[in-house]
């Protein structure tokens, strides 16, 4: 068997963008400093950024500045333009940089992009992808560290992808670009350097299909984005204690694969949701309500949520570590529901 081809999660996103732009000339990408060095005469300025994480570096050389557009720091302007372009024949991928910046273009996102199709009686389609970095763990403090996916999941008309592996990142990005609805594609900044198997040929991970990352029979742990690896680590720890943990990765939050989640809960009788977002009106709360509604009689213990506290993300490393749900918290919660 040949050695598996590996890429980082960031590299998988780059490859998906490259291949989709090659496949379809209506795909363009735009955002602040996604090329970098625009307007500079300095040698080497061109393509000096590739976005804050370098993910889009190299694309301008292949596709040119017509299709790879640096924008001014003007989120309402360029996110709105991406939506307007999507309604009129392009498939833009717009990078919002940090998801925390969503407040500036939010009207364009939720009153325009998300609703045009419905308001116009199904006569518009809005095939736009909005990329954004999420997550704590790099001491970026309160305005560059949130996850916030619950806000976008709340809005009818939007779809939300939260890849946890390089394989899913490529497949979900290809799916998002080809999808005719607006998709938020959220990239956890601490996962971008994670390596994993990624086939070279383009492929799709369908929006709305969860994956059971680890099969188990005693307790279901639904974990989102970065929390998948935290949950898997906790599951390994509990395996040594004879507890068989099933870990479910929803991969997209809208659509949410409720069937896979409910089938798992019906099998194990116990549910924990691990969510880096704040707890109120969160995915953790939403999935807990789903199980309470639909799988109540399968439950052998109370549903538990392991989330960040209801606070902004703190700066200091010790405070941030206390903020992010940990393997120890997840393991303790598993023990708690197993003894219920």
């Amino acid at each position: 068997m040949s050695e598996e081809r590996t890429l980082t999660l960031g590299g998988a996103i780059h490859e998906a963008l490259h291949q989709e732009m090659e496949r379809d000339s209506t795909v363009i990408i735009m955002g602040e400093d996604i090329v970098g060095g625009a307007g500079s005469d300095e040698p080497g300025a061109e393509d000096s950024w590739g976005g804050p994480m370098g993910i889009t570096r190299g694309l301008v050389g292949k596709f040119g500045r017509e299709r790879v557009r640096d924008t001014p720091i003007s989120e309402a302007g360029f996110i709105g333009a991406a939506i307007g372009a999507a309604v009129t024949g392009l498939r833009p991928v717009a990078a919002l940089m940090f998801v925390d910046f969503f407040g500036i273009p939010m009207d364009q996102i939720y009153n325009q992009g998300a609703k045009l199709r419905y308001m116009f009686g199904g006569k518009a389609k809005v095939p736009v992808v909005i990329r954004a970095l999420i997550g704590a763990g790099v001491n970026a403090a309160a305005q560059h560290s949130q996850t916030l996916y619950s806000i976008f999941t709340h809005i009818p008309g939007l779809k939300v992808a939260v890849p946890s592996t390089p394989y899913d990142a490529k497949g979900l990005m290809c799916a998002a670009i080809r999808d005719d609805d607006p998709v938020f594609f959220l990239e956890h900044k601490t996962l971008l350097g994670q390596k994993g198997h990624v086939p070279e040929e383009p492929y799709i991970v369908p929006l709305g299909q969860a994956l059971v990352r680890r099969e188990g029979s005693d307790v279901t742990v639904v974990a989102i984005a970065k929390m998948v690896e935290v949950a898997l680590a906790a599951a390994e720890e509990l395996a040594a204690e004879g507890v068989n943990v099933e870990v479910v990765d929803p991969r997209t939050l809208s659509p949410l694969d409720t069937r896979t989640i409910l089938e798992s809960v019906e099998k194990t009788g116990r549910l924990i949701i691990v969510d880096e977002d704040t707890p109120r009106c969160s995915l953790a709360t939403d999935i807990a309500a789903l199980a309470a509604d639909e799988a109540f009689y399968s439950l052998e213990a109370p549903i538990k949520r392991v989330t960040a506290p209801h606070t902004p993300v703190p700066f200091s490393p010790t405070l941030e570590a206390a903020y992010i749900p940990s393997k120890a918290q997840v393991a303790a919660t598993i023990r708690e529901v197993m003894s219920a």
Partner: peptide, 20 residues
């Protein structure tokens, strides 16, 4: 229904024409 919201959308339609 949102005052001023059409301005970026029109820029997008113009961008679409320019790119295409």
């Amino acid at each position: 229904g949102i005052v001023g919201a059409g301005v970026p959308l029109a820029c997008g339609a113009a961008l679409s024409a320019q790119v295409r």
